[in-house]
Computed example of a mutant assay.
Amino acid sequence: MNPLKDDDPLSRRVFLVGTAAGAAAVGVSATALAQEDDEENGDDEDENGDDEDEENGDEEDDGDGDENGGGGTEHIEIGDNYYEPESVTVEPGTTVVWEWVGDIDHNINPTSQPDDADWEGHPDLISDGEYEFTFDVEGEYAYTCDPHPGMDGTVVVDPDGGGAAEGPAEVVPDAAWTLVIATVAGMVSTLSLVYFFMRYGGESQ
């Protein structure tokens, strides 16, 4: 006796029912995922709209704001024969503050900068104190410490700089992953039952 013979009407009915159940599960999952994605996109758009309105409002109210953007502060330590960090990337309008933290005298001597820039650095040798400069002109600024060859630093002024991503974007929300896993588990269970009934449920007694 062959339990899988093609002319077994019960097996074919069970197979069709199982297939339909699996397709329905997939359809429900896809619909739920689409609705959830739409809701989240709507929330994001609302939040972005509120943020943009608030930021634009703040910028309009602040008459002393830097029209180039930026306006933040970046700190660099000058230790014993090193700048830390050696290279920074900032937005235009950012103020860079160098702080001497070592025991040896150092200076900040620009070796290259954009043509329109007028940065003079800090030519005097000191071992204590702070020096700051606001970078408005885009481009790369290189500097060195005169008495210590190899002690070099760089400031890159870039409108797209100064803001690094904190982490990878969440492509699929946790709730969606849970729904997908549940759907797959349901489909596996359904197909397992279909196989069981096709193999044993349609046998003639």
Rank of each mutant, 00 (worst) to 15 (best):
D80C: 08
G129C: 05
N41K: 13
G102L: 01
T73R: 13
P123V: 05
D103S: 15
T73L: 02
G69R: 04
D37M: 14
G27E: 11
I108E: 00
E74Q: 15
S11M: 01
G65I: 07
G121Q: 07
A21V: 14
N107D: 11
A117I: 00
W119I: 03
K5W: 09
A20M: 12
E84W: 12
N41Q: 12
P85G: 06
F15C: 08
V97L: 11
R12D: 05
G93M: 00
T89E: 13
E84C: 05
H75E: 14
G70A: 06
A32Y: 09
N68P: 06
S29K: 08
Y82E: 14
E54H: 08
G18F: 01
F135W: 05
G93Y: 03
A20K: 10
D51I: 07
E47W: 10
S87Y: 00
D50W: 09
D124R: 11
T134A: 03
I78G: 04
P3R: 04
D51Q: 10
V96Y: 02
G18E: 01
S87K: 09
G93D: 03
S11V: 00
E67A: 12
T94P: 03
P123W: 04
Y82D: 12
E45N: 09
G71S: 06
G70P: 06
E59H: 14
V137Q: 12
W119D: 00
D43W: 13
E47A: 12
N109P: 03
D43N: 10
N68A: 14
D66V: 03
G65A: 12
Q113K: 13
A20F: 08
D44W: 08
E99R: 08
V90Y: 02
D6V: 13
E54A: 12
S11P: 06
A25L: 15
G42M: 02
H122A: 13
T94K: 06
W119S: 06
G129R: 01
E86P: 05
N109K: 13
G121K: 02
L125A: 05
E36G: 15
D43A: 13
E36I: 08
T95P: 05
E40G: 04
D37V: 10
D80I: 09
D53R: 15
V28Q: 11
E91K: 08
I104R: 04
R13E: 07
G129N: 05
Y83M: 05
D38F: 13
D38K: 11
T95H: 02
D103W: 04
G121R: 05
W98I: 02
V14N: 01
T19A: 09
E74A: 08
G57C: 08
T73D: 07
G129F: 04
V101I: 15
L33I: 12
E55R: 10
